[in-house]
Design a protein around this nucleic acid. Structure first.
Lengths: 147, 147
DNA sequence: GTACATGCAAAAAATTTGCAGAGAT
DNA sequence: ATCTCTGCAAATTTTTTGCATGTAC
């Protein structure tokens, strides 16, 4: 089931359609990247993706993959995973989900929450007038292996 | 009030005590760094901190500040802020709090929550046996200026 | 005195940029 | 024909490392 309940083929079709819709051309390099993204498990780094794309198109340049990822994030097709580490990790699971971060090994797992109830304490909070689009919960601790 | 309800002097004393307790020597460089951290507002990057330390000790090396920050994180005196961006940001607010991330300008604010209620859906979640030490909520959206 | 900390300089890692040419629409 | 995208190579930015020297405890 994880990392996503939508099958890769479906996700690939969706990504292609999203690109077309937003005026991103479907070049061979971009198509391979989309396929790699749609099949990805976990949270690949830009470098992971460069390597995987190169398994199919060995001549693809670093810059192309980085630029494409940037563009896909800008258009909202994928997201960066907000977990500090070395390199940026990309979030390719389109389902609404959250994360568990192990402080031992640094790995990140997708988790699904049955309920999220959060209320801001406006009195203590030094910012107002903000609009919330998305809520993400990160649980931090130790995974079964690191315990 | 923000970024922390404890006054800088108190936070500085706490950090010094924590260092002593964990066998970290109080060198002049480290003391200046602790003072800068205790007075910090927001979420400084390593480079921000290097610059601020150098206002007091102009000869401090890059490596020293980076190594110290690493050590302070390892010992749990500060944390890295889990928000993807360019450089790692440090979390120096010792109070329990959460974050609002603006997708327009990328800025991050501390927010305080009145209540957090989260229940994991174990059936959908592909990991078990993990132990949770801390829960962090990130709200994503647009700040008042970027709206 | 000893173990830990620092400075320096260089390396490594991650990401971005300029530019000329190729390709999609 | 146009505007986007790509490859290459080099530059930038951020962080880490080795080693000799210095210093807090």
């Amino acid at each position: 089931m994880p990392p996503s309940s939508s099958p890769p083929a479906r996700r690939y079709a969706n990504l292609r359609a999203d690109c077309a819709e937003r005026g991103l051309r479907l070049t061979p390099q971009r198509e391979v990247l989309l396929r790699v993204l749609s099949e990805a498990t976990g949270h690949p780094t830009a470098d992971d993706l460069v390597r995987q794309v190169r398994e199919v198109l060995p001549t693809v340049s670093h810059a192309t993959v980085y630029r494409n990822l940037q563009e896909l994030v800008r258009k909202g097709l994928i997201r960066t995973l907000d977990v500090a580490g070395t390199a940026v990790q990309f979030e390719v699971n389109p389902d609404e989900h959250h994360h568990f971060v192990c402080r031992g090994c640094g790995q990140v797992w997708d988790i699904y929450l049955a309920s999220v109830d959060v209320r801001v304490n406006r009195r203590r909070t030094d910012i107002g007038g903000f609009q919330v689009d998305r809520r993400e919960v990160q649980l931090h601790g130790l995974c079964a292996t690191c315990r």
